[in-house]
């Protein structure tokens, strides 16, 4: 079962310039695992060396942040859309 994943501009260099791709899995975690298997260069941008997802990476299933659903265990269907949203942060001159 393939589910659509939207790729943000900064990460398209790792998905052959595609702004949306498909991956397979029954949960968010499985989808992301399949995604980073298909596009191996993407993995280091989404995950730290210890396998945990980087804290500046936000994942949305349709309209909802998966942190407020069941996180990586959130079930997905072929009708869903997963979006990867990188954090943007910084701070003033000091």
């Amino acid at each position: 079962m393939a589910t659509k994943i939207l790729i943000p501009t900064p990460l398209r260099g790792y998905t052959d310039q595609l702004d949306e791709v498909e991956a397979e899995g029954a949960t968010v975690g499985e989808l992301l695992s399949d995604l980073t298997t298909r596009y191996a260069d993407l993995r280091k941008h989404l995950y730290a060396e210890d396998g945990t997802r980087r804290n500046f990476v936000n994942i949305y299933l349709n309209d909802d942040d998966i942190r407020y659903l069941e996180k990586d265990q959130t079930p997905v269907t072929a009708d869903d859309t997963l979006s990867i949203i990188p954090s943007v942060a910084g701070g003033a001159w000091s």
Binding site: T9, P10, F56, S87, V88, G90, G91, A92, W93, S94
Partner: peptide
């Protein structure tokens, strides 16, 4: 989305140490 913006309320619009450290996207 080609980029982001923020303000430096009491200083010049130069990239700070924090801005350098937190920047993560070469396409942004």
């Amino acid at each position: 989305v080609v980029g982001g913006y923020h303000s430096h309320p009491s200083g010049p619009p130069d990239a700070s140490t924090t801005d350098h450290r937190d920047a993560s996207d070469a396409a942004f």
